[in-house]
Design a protein around this nucleic acid. Sequence first.
DNA 1: GCATTTATGCCACTCAGTGGCACATGCCTG
DNA 2: CAGGCATGTGCCACTGAGTGGCATAAATGC
Lengths: 259, 259
Amino acid sequence: MAHACKWRLPPRYTRLVTASPSTSPAADRRRDGSLKQAPADAPLRERKKRRTRQALIDAALEQFTQRGFGGVTLDELCDEVEVSKRTFFRNFTSKEDVAMAPLQDFWTAFLEELQISRPDGGPLLELARDALLSAVDRVADEEWAHRTLLSLRLAEQTPSMHAHSLHFCDRTTQAALEILHRRFNLDNRGDPRPRLAADMLVAAFRYALTGWAVQAARTSEPTSARPPAKQELATRFREAVVALPATLTMTVAPRRTNS
Amino acid sequence: MAHACKWRLPPRYTRLVTASPSTSPAADRRRDGSLKQAPADAPLRERKKRRTRQALIDAALEQFTQRGFGGVTLDELCDEVEVSKRTFFRNFTSKEDVAMAPLQDFWTAFLEELQISRPDGGPLLELARDALLSAVDRVADEEWAHRTLLSLRLAEQTPSMHAHSLHFCDRTTQAALEILHRRFNLDNRGDPRPRLAADMLVAAFRYALTGWAVQAARTSEPTSARPPAKQELATRFREAVVALPATLTMTVAPRRTNS
DNA sequence: GCATTTATGCCACTCAGTGGCACATGCCTG
DNA sequence: CAGGCATGTGCCACTGAGTGGCATAAATGC
């Protein structure tokens, strides 16, 4: 009798249900099965865990956007999803972490794509660029775009979130360098170029992200007819990569161009 | 009588004294007075504040290095310096902040140098590079080198410190872009190049920093005869900047170079 | 069905960080 | 030089993030 009272199904379990695979068709759609996307055939327990995780992410993005990052306590957030705070910290490392999940997913995908990339003797930057574009194509569906937009907007308002965002970027470049080192025997110690290349790529993508975010913010229509997000993002990223050589030679003169 | 008892000079005030201008000759030495280095002629109150600030920084770096970042509570740190926790948070924004002070000082100096830089119509990257080199030359005395070394070592062990470190870098690039925009009318919206250039420069300097740190760590001698730190750092930074063009064209092939 | 594993809830706790208020001290003016 | 003003500091109470331990529920495997 005790357990029936104590461990009842929460009344506000609706959020979990709406975030479940039944109503979000894109969430569990897999491409080719080669990459661990969202195994719809996974054991029940794991799917349940993913649902609560996703519910926490969505609730966090919504609440933080509405009332500000600092205006929402973890207790409130956990109440909203009907989950204990302890469970929250088994899914995320910090309050910032939950709101950065979309970008973190992306960077993970990038590393996976880099892992399976095939070198053709061409420039390293192009190899990495294509891996990143593949990652965009794989994860950047409209749901991801929506969440990432909220996440980016929050990050630029919240210093601690921005810091964590940059931390992800950096850990990704570190991991990317290790992959390149393992697979292609690159020298990361004495040669600055691999690291610089990785940082350049990240810089280009961050530029693409911010530009994409402000453009999407201007387009008031939430989900209406609009060029797909992934295409927008990919285009901006390509432009930034193309601009890399010209960045080195760009000149600057005093404000009044005298002589 | 109450105040004499309550506001006594703390017995362990020694740290404050050793950090005072009397025993640290380089700390208050000014170059040319054009930049707000460490005004030795400042009002007494401000000097006092600077002393406690510096004492907190040194104590933090020492304690964190000895017992780990997480192994030292702020209460312990403040007891060490005989300062209330409230005062700590008037000087620093967070626990991480105090340990990142050396690098933050550097970035501030960089922005100042960028502010007074004179464009000659040459590449933007060279302008920024020279500003950064000037900043190194200005702030990177041996004391700074020592503190920064501790700071870097802590940062790579402590994720939250690393995140804050990156946050500083990014805020610096933001500020640098604004300066460039104001002074040279650069377009930061439609043109990706200024931002990419700034990120490249930061990437080069971060590469220089890590290389410099591991090299300094290998050289066991703490303060003995050794090429001056600023020169080491400047050289590594120059190398990284020189390597930027080659980074764009660097190629990569499968591990076994078949055909 | 029963044992094992895994996820969760709950409780108590530490500690970073904040606001308010009183007080001390350097600074400045009459 | 006396007394007001501004500023820095200490103290106290408080919120909220994050952690560890333990009991329990539910999924899994037999």
